[in-house]
Amino acid sequence: MVPLPLAQLMDQFRRLPGIGPKTAARLAYHVLGMERERALALANSIIAAKDKIAYCSVCFSLTDENPCAICRSQTRDHHTICVVEEPRDVAAMERTRGHERNRGYQGTYHVLQGTLSPLDGIGPEDIRIRELVERIQTGDVREVIMATNPNLEGEVTATYVARLLKPLGIQVTRIARGLPTGSDLEYADEETLAKALENRREI
């Protein structure tokens, strides 16, 4: 019999994405073997991240200040918005900038927080499309780059948003198919992503 607190800890790990029963057990035993200090630090960082990080009220990426650093930055190009599915895709796109800040993507972001997917009950009202339209109507945006994932739902969402934005008189582009289809943006390496961005085409 596994003691109850240990079983509960395993169960908590098991609920995390990509963690099976074996890995959950290994992680739980690993935590038990830690010094109390280390375990406390782990627990505290989970709480701190949860409490201090929220969505940026402009771009809906994750941030500990509102608006986020990118939205507040004077050096970013606020005429260009790159539309992605999830906050982790912002991190992926930011990697295209490397260490010298004059390389790669210079514009701002908009995180949809999902894609259209009737299967999961997600329609246009359930993701941040309305907020994107408002941003465009109130700001001086010239180009919107659709960088949703190159899978079915990502393509459909890109098409939907493009058709919605076209009448507003801005240029809407789609990142190039340099990415393997059906793959995720976040796993693409910087170079592939930078190429895909460079070779974007109008939709």
Partner: peptide, 18 residues
């Protein structure tokens, strides 16, 4: 969803294209 009137028929366009 459209049948239950919780989505607009127009939304079908993008899926139909695919």
């Amino acid at each position: 969803k459209i049948q239950q009137q919780s989505a607009k028929p127009k939304l079908l366009d993008i899926w139909d294209d695919q």
